[in-house]
Write a protein that binds this DNA or RNA. Structure first.
Lengths: 150, 150
DNA sequence: TATAATCATCTCAAATTTAAGATATTTAAT
DNA sequence: ATTAAATATCTTAAATTTGAGATGATTATA
């Protein structure tokens, strides 16, 4: 296979793996009334604490409109609140409420188990290798985007 | 890292790699007036010839509503037409028109080059490894889904 | 042959995502 | 201190995707 054919193949296989894995993961998130995007936001706040809206978008790769939409939803559900930044009045933080904390504490372990069982059949070594390669691929694609823009 | 942590990490890295790669790929497809889904359908027909609608959905992982929507779009653009199956009257094929053929002939090489340049920075060996692992992961996730359903 | 179950496609409304642009704030340059 | 450029968030309409259910066709079974 030529280099280009390899790239195309990788592109196709990446898309399929993502979609198949995501389909089951989303099913689990839906059980708790959360979309994939909502879950990602809560997971981020759960692990990193309060976070500026803009940076949430950068972290989970959604557009500004998507940020507003998702944060609105989560705020309406009572899982987080907007807190404006004192130092920079352009900035708004998203901060988990106690209800949000409780939710994640209660559902995260099961979620982790679902993801893990999804990936049974791939060994720990293989996962490590895949993580390394996908990180590298993601980094390469990000660079490509940056360069194109310039 | 525990097995479960590895799985979670892989899940996150897979999502990010997919989204970053897709973002640039979609930008290229848009240049030719095609969405990612539309492009996938045309690419499939280009390589495999006429194909039943249902099976298109299975191949590129979109729901039945999405199939109808996308095929409608492509038919309106004149790139394919619906052809009903003689043997089984439930079935409708999607079949590329000469215009569709021409379009793909003209844009596919550039598309392949874009995908390839996106992935510069990952060696051929690494691509091969990634392909193998992602196939395995996709397969594992598909099995998981099948089992869950039973 | 009825009947039930399955299958392929379509319809439609609701949910979500995207893209472009508006507003307010901050930073940098003159 | 102005002005211009950059940044963060929000608004809105359009595009897309999802999910549930309708319809028509086929297959399997009693």
């Amino acid at each position: 296979m030529s280099e280009q054919e390899l790239s195309l193949k990788l592109f196709v296989v990446l898309s399929k793996a993502y979609k198949v894995v995501m389909e089951s993961a989303v099913k689990d998130m839906k059980k708790h009334g959360l979309s994939a995007t909502e879950f990602s936001v809560l997971e981020l706040l759960y692990h990193k604490g309060r976070f500026p809206l803009q940076q949430i978008g950068e972290a989970i790769l959604i557009t500004s409109g998507g940020i507003t939409y998702t944060i609105d939803k989560l705020e309406a559900k009572g899982y987080l609140k907007r807190v404006s930044c004192e130092e920079d009045r352009r900035v708004t933080y998203a901060e988990m409420t106690p209800q949000g904390q409780e939710l994640l504490q209660s559902i995260f372990p099961e979620h982790a188990a679902v993801i893990d069982s999804l990936m049974a059949g791939v060994t720990a070594e293989e996962k490590e290798t895949a993580i390394t390669l996908l990180k590298k691929l993601g980094y390469a694609a990000k660079q490509h985007k940056r360069i194109k823009k310039t």
